[in-house]
Design a protein around this nucleic acid. Structure first.
Lengths: 132, 132
DNA sequence: ATAAACCCTGTACCTAAGTACGATGTCAAG
DNA sequence: CTTGACATCGTACTTAGGTACAGGGTTTAT
């Protein structure tokens, strides 16, 4: 069980088979060796690779950014600072998203407070506010 | 200047002409009257309608939800409470998004702190964390 | 009267991150 | 030796919210 087929890798890494092919097309996982008949053969390392991708995604990195992280890892000319910078950019980015959502939340909260919850919708102050 | 063509409406409402056609297809704006030659003729009300859509979008409502808001407005059987409920659902929704982003932000902040910013990227603790 | 600037329709394209499918080939079990 | 479960490929479809043509017709300004 040292070598994995696409389906086995998919199961172990908890992704769809098609996702693996997709990641390969996107260059996120290297092209694996093939059997005589053309079947892909993956090593155990591939599980870790897919999990790396999944974790980075959970941290808000796009697949494009994941590629960059993966390249940084391999390129001997890059250093830690490059990685750290990417993390910082992403943090800033996420902070902005949070602020935007907070502004929206406050606006909605005010609108909610303006509405008594009775009477026809046609005269709802929430809808009227949107009309202004 | 009482009546507007698509292009004039687009300019007044600050949207792309194609967006107007798109909203019409989606049923967000009613089909306007047409001139002899088939040109759409919009009233001033249409500007307000598009602005309603834009504002609702800014508050995080999808176009599908905007449709619902618009229907509520017209339907005499609905009341304010329905609108208020939609606002509440959206607020909850946005709160969840904020929390998710905050968790991500914290995870990233920790990772950033773990990295001194020097040394080869191959040994960066941020990347190592993703490998775990 | 003619060119520029509009408008019409239908359809294709865009981003992101996959998912689904049809046609075909291969492998393992009974 | 056949059936079922897998594998391959290329391509199309998905969601959301538009945007961009191409190939026509119309209006307006000069």
């Amino acid at each position: 069980m040292n070598i994995l087929t696409t389906g086995q890798l998919a199961k172990k890494a908890q992704v769809n088979v098609e996702t693996i092919r997709y990641y390969e097309r996107r260059g996120l996982i290297p092209e694996p060796l093939r059997s005589e008949s053309g079947y892909r053969h993956y090593s155990q390392d591939s599980i870790a690779r897919i999990q790396f991708i999944k974790r980075a995604k959970e941290l808000g990195f796009s697949l494009k950014e994941v590629s960059e992280l993966l390249s940084l890892r391999v390129d001997p000319n890059t250093n830690c600072a490059d990685v750290k910078r990417m993390a910082e950019v992403k943090i800033t980015d996420i902070k902005e998203k949070i602020h935007a959502l907070q502004r929206i939340k406050e606006a909605l909260t005010k609108l909610r407070a303006s509405c008594q919850g009775s009477g026809p919708a046609g005269k709802c102050p929430i809808l009227e506010a949107l009309d202004t």
